[in-house]
Nucleic acid binder design. Structure first.
Lengths: 164, 164
DNA sequence: TATTGTTATACTCTATAACTATA
DNA sequence: TATAGTTATAGAGTATAACAATA
């Protein structure tokens, strides 16, 4: 266990200096940074009317067509009950569809429509603007990779914590 | 502008390989990691019934007593309208109070009650469990500092983007 | 019995507009 | 006119329970 206390004398009645400063707190900084990045994402995609969750769903369908709802929802950390309205929206816009006819007649295979394919190509081009801007802020692809690696350690810790 | 494309030949009709993979996307990883850290925080503070926003408000009042609501809300990225119910809760629990009587009779000076002082001391002790766990997952205080620095770059980029 | 998709519902967070009392 | 605190409200996001169809 890491106890990150600084050496040296410490007075008894100085609670103010013992208080955690938000600027050094992992969760706080993580939240603020995530909000900033999502805000940039939302601004970038305001015209295309795409939200982060919709973006990740369309990307995943494009990468791996034919997956069923539960598979995509679980991979993205979306509850399957909440996935329904999201997918309804994409279907209503003619970007993706649910196809029945597989071996398991309970499930739907998710695919992009031809219009969805075109939309996703534009979406990815626009996304590069956003992502390049974030990578630039970080200091380049190498710094981006360092960040991703550190974030993966937090995520891996969660995996380990679940096994009990 | 950083364009992070890999060299080498690229086929025309292979959209699947051109799609962004969520595992390398800054915003996506940031969100997932933040959820994991907040989940650990919520578990850790389930008994004390403290949410992240309440934690940061109590910490800030403890560090700098006498600030007014708007100052704390703005520093923490909370809309002043949403701060009211949060502060109502802390006051109802007897942890903090709004004191009138300053030069500006519109504003409230925020302070901890004696019970709030005791509560915050316990809260900070419990928080160390959580924070140490996160720092351990990252690989130690040095790795934590690296992460904070990278997140600060994203936040600094936002500051710069606002000036227009 | 278990799983897939679905509906309904509730709770939290966040955002905006408008009010009041003071400045 | 502007600011501090407040109220009301609306929209996302997220969580759980329960159901029908199918396995």
């Amino acid at each position: 266990m890491t106890v990150d206390t600084k050496p040296g004398p410490r007075r008894r009645d100085a609670p103010a200096t013992e208080m955690p400063d938000k600027e050094g707190i992992v969760g706080y900084k993580l939240r603020r940074a995530q909000l900033v990045v999502f805000h940039d994402f939302l601004q970038t995609f305001a015209r295309m009317k795409i939200r982060p969750a919709e973006f990740s769903v369309l990307s995943m369908i494009a990468r791996t067509p034919g997956l069923k709802q539960t598979e995509i929802a679980e991979a993205l950390g979306i509850k399957r009950a909440n996935f329904v309205a999201l997918m309804d929206g994409l279907e209503a816009r003619g970007l993706a569809d649910r196809r029945k006819g597989g071996a398991d007649r309970r499930s739907h295979a998710l695919h992009l429509t031809p219009e969805g394919e075109r939309f996703v190509r534009k979406m990815v081009a626009v996304w590069h603007e956003h992502e390049d801007r974030m990578v630039d802020r970080l200091g380049g692809p190498q710094e981006r990779d360092r960040l991703i690696e550190l974030l993966d350690r937090l995520l891996a810790g969660q995996e380990a914590a679940k096994e009990d």
